[in-house]
Design a protein around this nucleic acid. Structure first.
Lengths: 136, 136
DNA sequence: AGCAAGCATCGACGTCTGTCAATAGAGATG
DNA sequence: CATCTCTATTGACAGACGTCGATGCTTGCT
């Protein structure tokens, strides 16, 4: 299932010089393994805090819908201006949520021209899922 | 890995008549499938709210440690009085967190004698994980 | 009946969080 | 340069949240 939230900007995009696609686009949250699955080993205070912080980044309706929008968007990415309308939230609020998601390592940001393109870090979601329920 | 937070109450427990192990011990949160995995279909507002509520129940250090304690406890269950010390939190606070977890369908409560035994609903964790990252 | 233990609820408190309007900054266009 | 678009930051505010002490309720024991 793919939702196109690209509109006519795809056309305008062609008229702009694109950035040379940096290999490492500033990964704020490296999303490193913080602990064993919750049900397998006892979490100490610090591990629990780290894991809770990541889950908390996802545990918000707006942010869940953002992740869903990004994952289902054409090219699996979208810029802020395409996300405000589907969410019914103001642009600053959307920017705020995206920043939270980025700092948790759940999305990446790539600036092209005046637009900031966000996309989901599927590996981060996978790892989070694996911590809740062991993949065996 | 098993952590024994049972102490000497296991002995005292034998002297008390046990409840006849009811089949359906008041499942507050039935943990029914709320939506497709986040990355596969677009979440609407309501689905996002439901999923966010469940994730929010887990997205707390104390509650994560509670789940971890329960999962790693002998018999895979524990009562409130065994959980306050490992967490370093007051009994009312622990009771509060357990209630949140129970309402989210992540733990079940079974009252035996004066003790309330909580245990993890692994299926709920599995489902939650499956919504973040599709299995197979 | 009286008492003690385990647990849930209540009330209160400080903190965190989601939201917006206003503003500032970066970048493209004319 | 002036202007426009897109995005990020700031400041402010209401509501939610985590925590605790005090209290009440249930259950078993004497």
């Amino acid at each position: 299932m793919l939702i196109d939230i690209w509109h006519d900007r795809a056309v305008a995009d062609l008229t702009l010089q694109r950035s040379p696609l940096p290999i490492a686009p500033t990964p704020t949250g490296p999303a490193e393994m913080c602990c064993a699955p919750v049900t397998q080993e006892l979490l100490d205070a610090e591990q629990a805090a780290v894991l809770a912080a990541r889950l908390k980044a996802l545990a918000d309706p707006a942010r869940l819908r953002l992740v869903s929008l990004l994952a289902n968007a054409a090219e699996h990415e979208a810029c802020v201006c395409d996300l405000t309308a589907p969410l019914g939230l103001s642009q600053p609020t959307v920017s705020h949520h995206l920043k939270v998601l980025q700092q948790a390592g759940l999305v990446t940001r790539e600036k092209r021209a005046t637009w900031a393109y966000y996309s989901v870090v599927t590996e981060a979601l996978d790892e989070l899922a694996g911590l809740l329920s062991p993949r065996d």
